[in-house]
Amino acid sequence: MLFSGFSAGIIHGLTNLTLVEPYLDEAIGIENQNLFASGEAQDSPSFWVEYNSYRNWQKGGQILAGGILGMSFGSLFGIIFAFSRKALPEGHDAKKALVLAAIMWFTIFLIPFLKYPANPPTVGDPDTVVLRGILFLSFIAISGFGALGFYRLSKKLQKRKKILSIIGYAAFMSIVFALMPTNPDEITAPIELVNGFRVMSLAAVLVYWVSNAIILGVLWQRFKPDKPIHTKTH
């Protein structure tokens, strides 16, 4: 679980370098221009030396951060996979893992993303970062536990009535979506930049979930950690 999560996280980091990084560079370029315009920084060689130094640090750090975040979500994924494996569709463990990854990506990433989408640098007031962090995490938790609750409800329903649990989850999340406060920050960056960044962010996170599911599924199929042990006694 840790290996698959970390590996998929490294893939996520590398994907970000290709897909997301151009948007980050463009957004930080706007931030720099704002700094020069306001007089907070000077467009000098020493500025660019320092800038390139910490940007290289941030870009390289993204790979390690991807590994850590990947291992983190890989742990959560592993716990849920171990518990739900028998309830997932029959077949190869990679297929089971992909089905679960699709459900988890939808409930704890896509739904929260629709309410609180990712933003590039230049968007976001430092004074509201704690509030935004709490809102984002709360929405993930509500959606995740909501999906779990309605799944448990579906187990108690007859076959034809199981659809009610999906409708129930959709209704529940619609209410939460309407009631939760919106992101308090105004978007001041060009909307093409923000939208492009968001699409690439979505795609890169999807790459993580698919990678994690395939790696874990293949490893689970190969090593079968839940295989019963047969011993002989005399």
């Binding site: 997301v20 980050l24 993204q62 951060a65 990712a118 933003n119 935004r132």
Partner: peptide
């Protein structure tokens, strides 16, 4: 924060 900055933005977490 600086080490995870780019991933923080790319994964949807509030950063600034």
């Amino acid at each position: 924060h600086e080490l995870t900055h780019d991933m923080r933005h790319a994964a949807g977490f509030p950063c600034h």
